[in-house]
């Protein structure tokens, strides 16, 4: 009985990500449209897009290999598994010990690795440009992310995300400068990883400024749908991650009853909506930067992560 309940909770978490991720993207688009004084497409538009893409035939480039056809499912699966391990409404899920925070970051890196390879597979200039820039961004964002993980892990004493959240929610943490730095670094990394303004523009139509969109230019039909779905889940994953580590209120602890789970779910939806609105607001109020200024932006995250880690040692030894 216990096992069935645990498995059901784990499944609920996975279904939640799958079901809500496109809606989150729709929400961000809607917010941006309203801020531009446009009406914008309805929030459910991404669902319609996905459904249509799924039904369409795949137009495969002549030169594309099996790697190009397998990658969308691999990317989707890796992102989904990573998402299943980030506590959204409850901690201590059945499989939460499968991987810690470092492994979650690495799973997302696997997805990026295959996306970049797929970008180079068709043998076009744009695929290469996207892959090259994406790997540059990734190469700087990943160490920044890991340094943030170090800061958080040094405070919480573990990299196991479920335990980190339980520790953060316990209230014994207080306000710490290094956690603030880690939060800023994490936000910068999240913007870069999800190809948002100011690093990349998800709505761009100018090929030379594209990064993510250039990589997936050759994809169509169900393949494109899988990649878009994975990208949406990745955005949701990062919002859930910021939410569970830095705003851990309301997350149901392991073995909680139905009431606590409902509270957790409602609060998670609220956090998600707030994250989406804030992202739309931020993206509207800032301009995209040149590709070669992105390293400076990510370098700031790297330095903040490192400073946060070092400050922890200073505060500890004083």
């Amino acid at each position: 009985m216990e096992l069935i309940r645990d498995l059901a909770l784990q499944a609920a978490q996975m279904v939640l990500f799958l079901a809500l991720a496109p809606g989150l993207v729709g929400l961000v688009r809607k917010v941006k449209a309203r801020l531009n004084r446009r009406r914008g497409a309805p929030v459910i538009q991404p669902y319609r897009d996905l459904a249509r893409l799924m039904r369409k035939e795949v137009v495969l480039a002549d030169n594309a290999s099996w790697l190009f056809r397998v990658s969308p499912y691999l990317i989707f699966a890796a992102t989904w598994v990573a998402a299943a391990l980030v506590p959204s409404f409850a901690t201590g899920l059945h499989f939460s010990w499968t991987a810690d925070l470092i492994a979650i970051v690495a799973l997302l890196a696997s997805a990026r690795f295959f996306l970049a390879l797929a970008g180079m597979d068709a043998g076009t200039a744009f695929g290469g440009i996207g892959a090259s820039r994406e790997m540059m961004i990734g190469a700087l964002a990943e160490p920044a992310m890991l340094l943030t993980v170090f800061s958080v892990a040094l405070v919480a004493g573990t990299t196991q995300l479920s335990d980190v959240v339980a520790f953060m929610a316990s209230g014994g943490v207080g306000i710490r400068v290094s956690l603030g730095m880690a939060l800023v670094a994490l936000l910068i990394v999240a913007l870069a990883e999800n190809a948002r303004i100011p690093v990349d523009n998800p709505a761009t139509h100018l090929e030379l400024t594209m990064v993510h969109e250039a990589m997936v230019l050759e994809y169509s039909g169900r393949h494109l749908a899988m990649i878009e779905l994975a990208a949406a889940m990745k955005l949701m994953l990062y919002i859930a991650l910021v939410g569970c580590v830095f705003l851990p209120w309301g997350i149901a602890p392991a073995g909680a009853g139905a009431g606590a789970l409902m509270t957790g779910l409602v609060l998670f939806l609220a956090k998600l909506a707030a994250g989406g609105v804030l992202l739309g607001l931020f993206e509207t109020s800032i301009a995209k930067m040149r590709v070669f200024r992105v390293p400076d932006f990510l370098g700031a995250a790297l330095m903040l992560g490192l400073l946060g880690t070092l400050l922890l040692f200073v505060s500890r030894s004083l």
Binding site: Y73, L74, F76, A77, W97, A99, D100, I102, T158, D163
Partner: peptide, 22 residues
């Protein structure tokens, strides 16, 4: 610290979810 990583489970999960999706 209870840090844990299971390569086997990651493979099983990725294969299951990717295969099921496909």
């Amino acid at each position: 610290g209870r840090m844990s990583y299971s390569g086997l489970l990651v493979v099983v999960f990725v294969a299951l979810s990717g295969g099921a999706a496909a």
